[in-house]
């Protein structure tokens, strides 16, 4: 049983349930749609944008560290390898998970969810909903790297002695994360159940 099947439309903004026929929410004035008219378009659009931004985020240096006139530039992966070289396996693991595994996992998860809307899925609707919830929850934590860069850039400004500047990758990465978050938000989890209904079990 869904709202759609019950002939009701819930406002996605304030959750007031309306009778069909209302174009806008009587309480908050948001447009009412039983399902997002753009459908999966937005999800894919944000997803592609995020993926595009993720490429330079990995190619270009994330951090430019100048210490006593000695300047080093590190990409995300480069930084991970450097940390490994310094035997900081724990930190390397955190950075690797936060900056590589999570974003990549999000791309894969969102793509999987979006693709599984109109066809049979190996996962149950409930499992997919959990997946979606995890993606949405964990998405913000991908910003960990960006935060580190931002804080370092703000705090470590000791002129000649030590200097940290964000690289192009930092911006790219932040955008990439933002786009994937938007992508995840654009995904209407109700669609999961539509398929479920259409395919009665």
């Amino acid at each position: 049983m869904t709202a759609r099947r019950a002939g009701l439309v819930a406002c996605t903004t304030c959750c007031k349930v309306h009778h069909p026929g209302e174009a806008t929410c009587l309480r908050c004035g948001s447009p009412l749609h039983s399902r997002d008219p753009a459908g999966l378009q937005n999800v894919w659009a944000w997803w592609i944008a995020g993926l595009i931004m993720y490429i330079p985020a990995n190619i270009y240096p994330m951090l430019r560290t100048a210490s006593l006139g000695h300047e080093t530039q590190n990409t995300i992966i480069g930084g991970v390898f450097e940390l490994i070289a310094y035997n900081s396996y724990g930190v390397a693991l955190i950075v690797f998970i936060a900056s590589v595994i999570i974003p990549v996992g999000k791309f894969v998860a969102i793509a999987f969810l979006a693709l599984s809307i109109n066809r049979a899925s190996i996962l149950s609707a409930r499992a997919r909903l959990h997946l979606y919830e995890v993606v949405e929850f964990i998405g913000r934590w991908s910003m960990l790297d960006v935060f580190v860069v931002a804080i370092l850039s703000a705090l470590v400004q000791f002129e000649f002695v030590a200097n940290v500047h964000p690289g192009i990758a930092a911006v790219s990465f932040a955008l990439s994360v933002a786009f994937t978050m938007l992508s995840a938000q654009s995904f209407d989890p109700r669609l999961i159940w539509d398929t479920d209904e259409a395919d009665p079990t």
Partner: peptide
């Protein structure tokens, strides 16, 4: 109630969302 559900348009061009500008820009 009679569902006033607009079926997804079959023409992707007509119903193209503005959001697509973002990946194109990116």
């Amino acid at each position: 109630a009679d569902m006033d559900v607009t079926p997804p348009s079959r023409s992707p061009w007509r119903n193209l969302s503005l959001v697509w500008v973002v990946p194109v820009l990116a």
